[in-house]
């Protein structure tokens, strides 16, 4: 195994980690907008890492890498735009954000979470 392949495997695993974190966040976070945070950020970085891992696996200078680079740029541009489009549609539809406060510790909050 060459160094490039090891780097590729590392990047792909890191990307998979961030994509799974995004999916876990989709379940754990309380309302629509905070879920948008999970998918919009963690998934963007996850995809970028996975695709750059593919680039290293293919060898840096090759035609496939150039194609993957184009995909990389388009994912980087479209992913935040799609997140914004979703949030905007929800806002226009009248979905209100839930203003919970879980930064300050309180017993009441803990009770609410165990339910």
């Amino acid at each position: 195994m060459s160094i490039l392949q090891i780097l590729a495997i590392f990047l792909i695993f890191a990307g998979a980690f961030f994509i799974s974190v995004g999916s876990i966040g989709l379940i754990r976070l309380p309302d629509f907008y905070s879920r948008c945070h999970a998918t919009g950020k963690a998934d963007t970085l996850g995809l970028l890492l996975v695709i750059s891992g593919f680039i290293f696996y293919e060898g840096i200078i090759s035609l496939h890498s150039a194609k993957l680079l184009i995909i990389l740029i388009f994912v980087g541009l479209t992913s935040p735009t799609a997140t914004h489009a979703l949030a905007r549609a929800a806002f226009s539809f009248g979905i209100k954000p839930r203003f919970v406060d879980r930064e300050t510790k309180s017993k009441k909050e803990k009770k609410g979470r165990t339910k």
Binding site: F18, I24, G25, L29, K41, F99, R102, R113
Partner: peptide, 17 residues
């Protein structure tokens, strides 16, 4: 992404939107 990952994996999910 690291920030979001920290928030999600924290047992209390410390958010204040």
């Amino acid at each position: 992404s690291l920030h979001v990952a920290y928030v999600i994996l924290h047992p209390r999910v410390p958010i204040k939107p």
